[in-house]
Amino acid sequence: MLRQTSQLLPALLSRREDAACLEVLDLGPARPETVAYFAGSRCRLHIADLFAELPLAWEQEAPDYAAELAALLPLAPASRLDVVLFWDLFNYLPVEAIQALQAVLRPHLNPGSRAHAFGVHKRSAPENTHHFGILAGDTLALSPRPAAIAGYAPLSQARLQACLSDFRFERSVLLGDGRLELLLLPA
């Protein structure tokens, strides 16, 4: 397991200290580090693992992305998310699916919600081959993916920013390999 420091995690996780019950949506696979990290406080952790659905198997001619994604996300109508962990999911989704995912999440966000994602500065940036977890308030854990994920097709930074109309890029950090780490807030 590799460790990666993150300048953005402290801001992402700042509500952990004052939320009565932190509600987190992790769109990656369940990772021991993430469960252990949040086990230290009262919280509800939703683990959806959309990466297990990649490449999207329902890419027929006119897929109903919103309906398919809603079925995959275990959110009750009353769920209000404090933290959303997209990781590098956007690098594997078509624009229509990213927009549908935002539509599914829209009722569950509030002005204090914060989200984390990885994009790319240039589309030629190499593919990440790890799953992510949260090891500490400023450290990510990187574990090798058991199998490669097909369909790596990252959007340019400008295209992703335009596509994520429900969020604004609060902060971003350009990593040495050309990837971007993003802190997103509701627009």
């Binding site: 952990r16 086990a39 230290g40 009262r42 952790l45 683990i47 275990p74």
Partner: peptide
């Protein structure tokens, strides 16, 4: 308390309330 070992597969929600655990540490400064 919930413990997930490396290699385990889980999909769903986890509600945890450790109760009397000490308060979370302040986030490190950037």
């Amino acid at each position: 308390r919930v413990t997930l070992e490396d290699g385990a597969h889980f999909k769903g929600s986890i509600d945890m309330d450790p109760g009397d655990t000490p308060a979370a540490k302040p986030a490190p400064k950037v």
